[in-house]
Simulated assay, not measured.
Amino acid sequence: MNTTTNWNLQGSYFEACNCETACPCVWLQPPSEGNCKLLVAWHIDSGYLNSEKLDGLNVALACYSPGHMKEGNWQAALYVDERATDAQFDAITQIFAGKLGGHPAILMGFVTEVWGIKKVKIDYQEQGNKRQLIIPDIAQATIESIQGIKGGDATIDNPPLCVVPSHPAVVAKSSQYEYHDYDKAWKFTERNGYYSPFTYQP
């Protein structure tokens, strides 16, 4: 059995949820509405698992927390770029399912139910201070950063809970958020978003 976990992912990410801006969950406070409906997207600029290259692929995660996020019991679904080969799909699934350590393992440690894992078309877009995710017939989210008092983007660094600990998160607000899959139907606007570069490794 191959136990090597030589992997690294670098790229950009963004997330949107149903909390008010900025989401209190990163400070280990209760979600604004008592639960969290989270959608996260990653674009891998460069990445690998052992000899398997993962450059240019997109990944998304839908996650539901029924209460305080630090208490766990999250439910989640993973979406992998349809352009991934079977070997790339397997590598991404292992990493983002938390089987190979690193920050994904910490996040997935809160998940108690996985709705499913599937290959889909994922369109990840960056335009200035806007980010957009489109998964046809499943999800669509658009967020735009909030400007800080000194100019530039408002950011949060080193909170106790976050999707990406490697970089400060730009605070954003959604203009659109829709998710329809696994008997879930979420739709709202003007709620929280974050984005930043990311680095994951064991």
Rank of each mutant, 00 (worst) to 15 (best):
I106Q: 05
G101Y: 04
V114S: 14
D81I: 07
V111Y: 08
E126N: 11
A91N: 05
Y124H: 05
V164W: 00
K99G: 08
G109I: 02
I138K: 15
E113K: 13
I122M: 03
Q88T: 04
F96K: 07
K150V: 11
T155F: 02
K99W: 02
P159E: 13
H103W: 10
V114K: 15
E126F: 05
I146M: 04
W74C: 00
P165S: 10
I135L: 01
D153Q: 03
K119V: 01
I134R: 06
A97R: 09
T142Y: 08
I135F: 05
Q125L: 12
L107E: 10
D153P: 01
K99E: 12
I106T: 14
D86A: 13
A87C: 08
V80N: 06
D137T: 09
Y124G: 07
A84Y: 09
N73R: 15
I149V: 12
P159N: 11
P165T: 12
M108E: 11
N73W: 03
Q75T: 06
I135P: 04
G148H: 13
Q127M: 09
Q140S: 11
I92G: 02
G152D: 10
K150I: 13
D81F: 05
P159Q: 09
A141E: 08
A77I: 02
P104K: 09
L133F: 07
Q94P: 04
N158A: 08
L133R: 05
R131C: 10
I134K: 13
S166K: 08
G102Y: 02
A139S: 15
Q125F: 07
E113Q: 15
D81R: 08
T112Y: 04
A97M: 14
D81C: 08
W115F: 15
I143F: 07
V111D: 07
Q140H: 15
D157F: 01
N158G: 00
P165Q: 10
G102M: 10
V164S: 11
A76Y: 00
P160G: 08
G109Q: 00
E82W: 00
I156G: 02
R83M: 05
D81E: 09
K121C: 10
E82M: 03
A91D: 02
T85V: 07
K99N: 15
N73K: 14
D123S: 07
A77C: 01
Q75S: 14
A76N: 06
K118E: 13
A87H: 11
I135N: 04
D157G: 06
Q75R: 12
K121Y: 06
A97G: 07
K150D: 15
K130F: 10
G98M: 04
A91W: 02
H167T: 00
D157E: 05
K99H: 12
G116W: 06
K121T: 13
D157P: 00
G109M: 03
A76P: 04
D153E: 05
W115H: 13
I156Q: 01
F89D: 05
A139T: 11
